[in-house]
Nucleic acid binder design. Structure first.
Lengths: 205, 205
DNA sequence: TGTTTAACCGACTGGTCGGTCGGTTAAACA
DNA sequence: TGTTTAACCGACCGACCAGTCGGTTAAACA
């Protein structure tokens, strides 16, 4: 049965449009009006689903950014048993994704972080949760690698995971600033060189 | 002779207040009204020195961010002959600077980059210029280190410089996001471990 | 089919904020 | 000391934009 009104789907469309707009212009630069145009909705519809702009922003973090990361991460971690290789492949894939971007907008999570983490407590809490979730995923993968003998025993997973995450975002940010996604290949290549130094030397014999 | 009106000084005070406000709230979050309060000036005075908000933002990049970086860089590069050591010391000093920050606001340059580089062409051009200037400074230092035998011959200065710069900003961004400047010690420590791998092996003998 | 309800509509509002403009005053200079 | 000019003042304007609210309509259900 076809229904012209579908609350859940409408909500999802609003969220998706908001995500795009935040990625495009930042949270503060996002305009409700633009979202209405993109979704072909009237203002009342949007404010029926979200109490205000801030709640919409929060929902994008909780329901889009969090989910997107986990989908990609699980895909790569499932494909490559060695977590170091999985990360390296993920980075190379990212570099490939954006290679021909005409206007490279960087990492959505990093963008929001830089813009809002120090300004708004609610954003800070939610973004920190996403970051912690990513870090935890990397830590778990590294620990798994250590017990399998793929990863050096002497590295501290928490510390290493945080550094890789930070470098990743820094790289995306630098390429965005230069408006040069073609730099991603080199930059992730250098990061991957570092990741190679984390491999267990046992494999060299 | 004491003058109550000093155009140059007034302009500098406006610039400084604008810089603080951008660091505090981002360019889009910066309010002209706040700058007027901070400087005890009327609107007419501000618009006498700057045609509009955008020009003020641009001037902050050109005249504050650019200068601040070079001052710090020259200080460390002058103090430590080995460029790798100079960078490591600079990072450790930064970690120390922010250790007890109650609200860690990250790197001013990175913040503006993330917020404006993809939105506004004028900001992009100016910020790219600052980034290129930093990269060039690192490249020059690395090349000097190579000819002195302090830095491995097989690394590519341009590529390495860009990676270090990206990692630096990523680290500042991650610590900002977590609102945890105490992480800087660990993160810069890990970056410094990487920098150690760039030292010329000749020194081991 | 009548009733209820939740989804959706869109004109309007109220506050915010960048920017203007006619004026005032300090400083430099003749 | 009179004149000019640039520094500075601050009331006001108008555009923008998040959010409201009284209404309308599709869908579910009795």
């Amino acid at each position: 049965m076809v229904t012209e009104r579908n609350a859940e789907q409408t909500r999802a469309r609003i969220l998706e449009a908001a995500h795009e707009e935040i990625y495009e212009s930042g949270y503060q630069g996002m305009r409700i009006e633009t979202i209405l145009q993109k979704t072909n909705l009237a203002k009342g519809a949007l404010y029926h689903h979200f109490p205000n702009k801030l709640a919409l922003g929060y929902a994008v973090v909780d329901e889009i950014l969090m989910v997107n990361f986990h989908n990609i991460w699980n895909e790569f971690i499932g494909k490559f048993p060695n977590p170091l290789t999985a990360m390296q492949e993920l980075f190379l894939w990212k570099a490939e994704c954006f290679r021909n971007e005409q206007r490279f907008k960087g990492c959505p999570l990093n963008n929001l972080n830089q813009e809002m983490a120090a300004i708004d407590q609610g954003f800070h809490e939610r973004l920190e949760k996403v970051m912690a979730s990513i870090q935890q995923a990397i830590v778990t993968a590294l620990e798994g690698g250590q017990s399998k003998g793929d990863v050096r025993q002497d590295i501290k997973p928490a510390r290493t995971a945080m550094f890789i995450m930070a470098s990743y975002q820094g790289i995306m940010g630098a390429a965005k600033c230069m408006q040069a996604p073609e730099l991603l290949g080199d930059l992730f290549g250098t990061l991957n060189d570092y990741i190679d130094t984390l491999r267990s030397p046992a494999h060299s014999f």
